[in-house]
Amino acid sequence: MEQELISKKELLELTKISYGQLYRWKRKNLIPEEWFIRKSTYTGQETFFPKERILDRIEKIKNMKGDVSLDELANMLSPNLTELVRKREDLIKLNIISKSTLEFYTEERGKDKELNFEKILYLSILDNLFDSGKINFDEGKLILTFLDEYYPKFKGKNCELLFLRKLGISSCCLVSKPNEINFENSMKVVEKLNISDLIEELKIKLV
C-alpha cells in the first residue's frame, strides 16, 4: 500500500495556505494525526503527508469554509457517527442509495420508516459493492450481518472493510487503520473500502 507523499513545504506552496492555517486545522482535527508522517531528511525531521488525501482534504476545507464554522466542519470530517436520521424516500431522492439496495434491505430487515446514520452507512457500503458487481445478494447478506455485529466495535475509528474470496468461497473482515495486512496468494481481495472516507462523503451528502 505504498502511497505518494508530499512534503509540508510543497503542500503549502501548492495549496497557497500558510503554516498558521495548517496548524489551526490540525488543532481542530480537520486533518487527522496519522497523516502527519515524520521522516528524517538532511535538514532534520520533516513532515510529509499522503499526497492525494491531503490535497483532497484541503480542497474540501477551503470550499466549505465560508458556509460552516471550523467546529462543524471538524464534526463533519471526523469518523464519528452523527446522530442523524433520514427517511427512506429521502435517501433515494438524494441519490445516496439505489432502489434495489433499499429493497434488498427491506427484505432482510423489514420496513422501518426511518434509518439512522449507521444503517445508512451499511446500506451505502452494500450499494457500493452491488453497484460494482463485485458481490451477489447472498454475499450482501453476509456483509450486512457482519457489519451489524462487528462494526459498532470500530465506531469512530479509522477502518477499512475487506471483501475476500478464495476458491469461490467469500468472506469479509474489518481492519483498523493504519495497519498492514497480508494474505497468501490464492486469497483474492475483491474489494477494499475505506469506511472513514465513505462516512465523510455521506455526511457531506446528508447535511
Binding site: 503554516y19 496548524y23 532534520g44 525531521q45
Partner: peptide, 22 residues
C-alpha cells in the same frame, strides 16, 4: 527546539534548526 513554523514569528534567545514563516 527543532522546528518553528508560523505566520508571524518573533524570537529571542532561541536555538532552532529551522524557522519558517511569513
Amino acid at each position: 527546539t527543532d522546528i518553528i513554523e508560523g505566520d508571524e514569528i518573533y524570537l529571542e534567545y532561541t536555538n532552532a534548526k529551522v524557522v519558517r514563516g511569513n
